[in-house]
Structure formats: C-alpha cells, structure tokens
Design a protein around this nucleic acid. Structure first.
Lengths: 347, 347
DNA sequence: AATGGTTGTGCAATCGATTTCAGGAGTTTC
DNA sequence: GAAACTCCTGAAATCGATTGCACAACCATT
C-alpha cells in the first residue's frame, strides 16, 4: 500500500534535517536556543515532511493539554453562547483548545467535571454555573487535585474562587431606579430560578431599593420564574388575575420579559401603553422586539474574554496568586421603548 | 511537602491490587477478560487510590483522542448553539469530548482546522459550515490525512462528504405554497448570504415554485441579507420605498424576519394586517414574538444528534463505508399569526 | 597556555497507558 | 495420559515529544 505513509513524527523531521529530535523540539519551542542554520534546515524539513505536532505526546510529557474546559448550564441560551464565543476567541488566540460541557440539571455534574479535569484532558476549568456544590468544587481546587478554576457570570460566594462577574444587585438597583424615576411605584418582578445566585441578587437589589424608597413590594407581585420564556408567559396569566396590578415589571432576563409580554398581549395588555417592562441581558432580539426592550446590557464579550484571560494567566503563571482574583464588571442600561411613564388612568 | 502525592497512575493501582498494570488496563477496557476476583480487587484499589485515567497517555498509545472537533460559523446564533447542544449530548453519552472552533469569516480557517485535526487533538471533524473551500476539505479527508468528516446543516455539494441536512429547497417550496394557498401571489424574499448554500437553496426553491405557479418574482422583491436581524431591518427600509409592494415576504430565517418586522413597524406597517411574513428555524423567540411567527421548524436537535452519531460511528466503525453517507431530514411548518390572507384593499 | 564561560547539540530517560506475545494452570477431548 | 484448548496474567515494547545532563567547540580572560 502506498498509503502506509504514517503521519510524520519529530523523528522524521530530525532525520531529514540531519539533527536530533531534541534539536527539532527546541527549534519549535525556543528558537533562540538553536543556531540560525539548523533552524532554517529544520523549517525546511518540517515543510517538506508536512509534520504536525502530536499533541497527545506533548500533553503526556508536559502534563498539560493546552486545553480548557468550559462548563455551562445551557449552551442554547444566547447569553451563554456569546460568552463562550468570547472565551473561544481568547483561548484560541493563546493556543488553547476549548472543550465544552453542558451541565444539564444536576446530572452527576461534579463527578463528570472531576473526571474531565483529572484525566489530563483539560488544564483548567472555566465554570459559568453557580449552582454547583461549593464543597465539591473546593475539593477539586485544593491539593492534591489543585484544578485551576475560574468562576464567571455566576458567583459562588464565600469560597475564595477566582471570579469574573457583574454586580447584579447594584444593576438591579439601577433598573429599579429607572422605573421609579419614570414615576412608577407599583412594581413587580419575574424571578429567575430561586437556586440561582444571579437571580437572587437581582431580586434582592430590587426589593432593597423599593424598600428604601418607601415602596415595599407585596409578595403577590413577585412571580416565580426560571429565566425561560415559558415562565414569563405563565407569569402573565397570574398577572392578569391580580386584583391590583403593578404598573411596571422588572423581569430577571430578556427571555422572561419576552414571554411575559407575549402572554400579556393575549389579554389585550399592551406595552408600554399599559405597562412598562425592563429586563436584563440585551440579547440581540431585544432591540428588535415589539416593543424594543429596555434592558440592562451585560458586557458578555468582555466577561468571557477576561475570564479566559484570567484562567490562562493562572495556568501559565509561575508564582501562585495570593488570594483569589476578582473582577467585577459594570452593566449598562439600554433604554428603549418598553418602559415609559405609568398610564395616568391606571389605578 | 506532604502534597507531593502525585496523581495516581495505573501502576499505583496495580501495586495496590497486587497485579500488573496490564491487568488493570484490561480490567478497565474489557472486564470480561479478567477474573471475578482480581476485578474486585482492582475496583477496590481504584477506589482507594482515587485513580483516574490519563487521557493523554491513552491517546498517545491508541492514536485517538476520544474527542471530536465541531467547527461552526457563529456559535452565538441559537440555530447553531442548539445543534451544538445536541452534538455535545450525544458525544458525551458515548464518551467523547467536544472541542469547539468558531470560524470567523475566512480567518485562515482551513489551516487552523488542519492543525487541529492533524495534531491528534481530535479524531474527527463535524463541520457546520458549508462555506469552506471544498478542495481544502477534500485534501484533509483523503490519504494520507484521512480525517473523518461529517458535514451537517450546510451541504457541500458534489464532493462526496458524509452529510446530514434538511431539504431546504423543498421546504422553501412548502413555505411558498403556504403563502400561495392563503391567496398571496405577490411575494418577496429576504435572502441569506449569497455564498451560503442553504440560503441559495431556499431562494431557488422559492423562485422555482413561484415560476411554476405563474407568478415569477420581480428582482426588486428579492432583498439581500445575511441571516442577521440588521439585514432584515435594512430590507424593511427598501421595502417601503417600493412603488408596488408584495403582500407577503419569505425571510430566509427567523432573525431576518424579526429585523424586517421591527423595521416595518417603524413605518406603521403591521403584520399580519398589512403583510404576511414566513421564515425558517423556529427559534425559541418565534413563538413569543409579536406577532408569533409562522416558520419552518428545522429539526435541530435531531440533526445534531444524528450528525454526531454518524461521525462517531465512522470513527469506531471497523470497515470503511462504501460511498458517502447521507441523511436528509424533514422540516415542519409551524403556522402561527404572522401569516394570513392578503389584505383586500392592498393593491 | 591554562582557565572559565558560552553556545549548540545529542543521548537517553521519561510521561502513563495499551497491547503483543508468551506461558502457567486448569479443563476437555480422543 | 497425551494433546489441544481455554482462561488468566505478566513482561516488555511501544506511542511521540520533552528535557536534564553531558560534552564538544569556540571565544575571552588572565
């Protein structure tokens, strides 16, 4: 068979260039340690043989896969996928591969991540999900495992992991003040999942602000939700059955706002005529929804990029950090048409 | 240092269980080749030592990374990310890792993919982008490289790659007939990128059907686009400047339909009152847009799952296939409120 | 001319699992 | 009771790159 040409190894290159494999390896990793002449011969040899590095061999020897693992709760969600996009760009730019793991609810997650990390497939873990058991995470980040970990998006409080997040409570406060400034005092909320830190922070920031401003929020104006459109849609049904209704709603994210608005529309309630709605994320559809949504834009690209940067810095860092790194980014309120002054006749 | 405990290797397990490393390896890969008793001792030893397999070592020896590479044009797009989700599930279920590579326009793509594949990081390539140079692809799929490749979503015609696709031309025909059946005869189109096979197929299916039914489409009713909302939005501006307007539009995907509708709204044109719009994909927002969109649902999950299945089957298959595999899936028209009969006064 | 330093290169060990080959123990067949 | 089999196991080679150590060649210093 002619096809029995194996893929060329570093040995083949060495033979061709009349040097040892060691020299080829050095020519690739630290060209300055090799003389001009041999470097040129090796370059030529690599070109002729069509050599490409065998990553498995390198990983085995160097005990590092030049790969990071990104674990996220739902890759279908544009919020996460655009962060993943930014991570991928940064990682690729620095020569790292990106493995993805989707963490469907609970599904023996910790075990899976542990296997991944401990099997030398990935050098570090970038976690976009705050719902994992902190103790399990703690276990794999400490010796003897010492898995490098950066938590992004969703904080895991009080455990000293490296993090890149936005200040959700503060952003929620700004969202709330935006509604208050427009003249709303009766404001409700559509929650994210109760177990989710981000959702809790947004709710907390909202409630605290309303309290401070003398408009404590009745419990029946706070609707359960899970960040999905269906939950916003369901909230609309409960909304219309209220005897006394808020004039504005703060939805935990764009998706639940969209579901909510589409539900309201079935009951003839129009936004912003009858109600104002503000949410979080500024997904691409937000600007083109009917009405265009007022929303808190999270710096998704920056967040992903910085998180990847941080993790790779840690991986390549010579000295260990003192204390956990922590970056808090600011969100930006994008005012569009879904918020306005409360309708005068309402109430 | 106490922490000098290395991560345990198969040797450690072997020592602990009083067998050789070979036996441990066999116990893991083919338990039936090992006696009941030793199997139990080894299981115990693995548990006690906390052993996890070193994938790099295995990959080196087996010349396979148990990983596939998914290359896609834009991971932020829900259309692709939900396919990726399905791929990830299938791959994980079969013990494969998933590397992602985002192919920003052109960006020395071929070279990057080649490096990836030839460096033993991944065993096979799952390509969700039909815009790559077929010759380059051909080169890496043939000996001596012989990279296993499955092309999904976007076909690369006439090159004999394994594919999983939907029949876009036929689906476009059904979409068109839906509008015709409602009584529309003046129908326009918002195109996807002209270089994109899928976009071309949809346009072709549309034009052919209109032709057949005796309503050839004037050139000025076919708007350029690129699958993004902004391009739909821009199309709306050109639409309103037409002296004679279509009563219905077929948008190449949901995003461009959404952009288009949001553009029209600024000019006081309402859907479905003044115009019908139908599109492709059934993204999650389609059901909750205002109005809810009539759209051709692509079986994204199935497509992703089957593509991953096909690739992994090929990777694990003992005998080579005769001829390329090819799966064509059907799409399903979801009729919602964005399409209706043409307004009588229009014209 | 002897010493010390720098540079460039090769040898050989190493990373951790898999797999071929061989052989011992036990069982069946004629 | 020998031959043929099966079953289980271990020794050792192997995958392909990296890297510590050794050393030769060359230069500079005294």
């Amino acid at each position: 068979m002619i096809q029995s040409r194996k893929t060329p190894t570093i040995q083949d290159v060495a033979r061709f260039a009349n040097v040892s494999a060691a020299t080829v390896s050095r020519a690739l990793s630290r060209p300055d340690r090799v003389s001009e002449g041999t470097r040129a011969r090796i370059a030529e040899a690599i070109h002729v043989t069509g050599y490409t590095l065998n990553q498995a061999a390198r990983s085995l020897r160097q005990r590092s896969a030049h790969t990071i693992l990104v674990a996220l709760p739902d890759i279908r969600n544009q919020f996460f996928s655009s962060i993943l996009d930014a991570i991928e760009r940064e990682a690729t730019g620095r020569g790292y591969g990106v493995l993805v793991a989707n963490l469907y609810f609970g599904h023996e997650t910790a075990r899976r991540l542990q296997d991944y990390m401990l099997s030398n497939r990935a050098d570090g873990l970038l976690l976009l999900d705050g719902s994992l058991n902190p103790e399990t995470l703690k276990a794999i980040t400490l010796p003897p495992y010492s898995v490098p970990l950066v938590v992004a998006c969703e904080e895991i409080p009080d455990h000293g992991f490296h993090t890149v997040v936005t200040d959700n409570a503060q952003a929620a406060e700004r969202v709330t003040r935006h509604l208050l400034d427009l003249g709303h005092t009766r404001i409700g909320h559509i929650m994210g999942p109760e177990t989710n830190v981000v959702a809790r922070d947004r709710l907390a920031g909202f409630q605290r602000t309303m309290q401070q401003e003398g408009h404590p929020v009745p419990a029946e104006w706070v609707f359960r939700g899970n960040f999905e459109m269906a939950s916003g849609f369901a909230a609309a049904a409960r909304f219309v059955s209220l005897t006394e209704r808020p004039t504005a709603m703060f939805a935990a994210n764009d998706e639940s706002a969209i579901g909510f608005l589409s539900g309201l529309r079935q009951h003839g309630i129009e936004c912003p005529r009858d109600i104002s709605v503000v949410s979080f994320d500024d997904l691409s559809v937000a600007a083109h929804y009917t009405p265009p949504l007022t929303t808190m834009r999270q710096p998704r690209e920056t967040l992903g990029r910085l998180a990847a940067e941080m993790l790779i810095d840690i991986l390549e860092g010579t000295e260990p950090q003192r204390g956990p790194l922590r970056i808090v980014l600011n969100s930006e309120l994008i005012v569009r048409e879904s918020t306005g002054h409360p309708a005068p006749q309402s109430h």
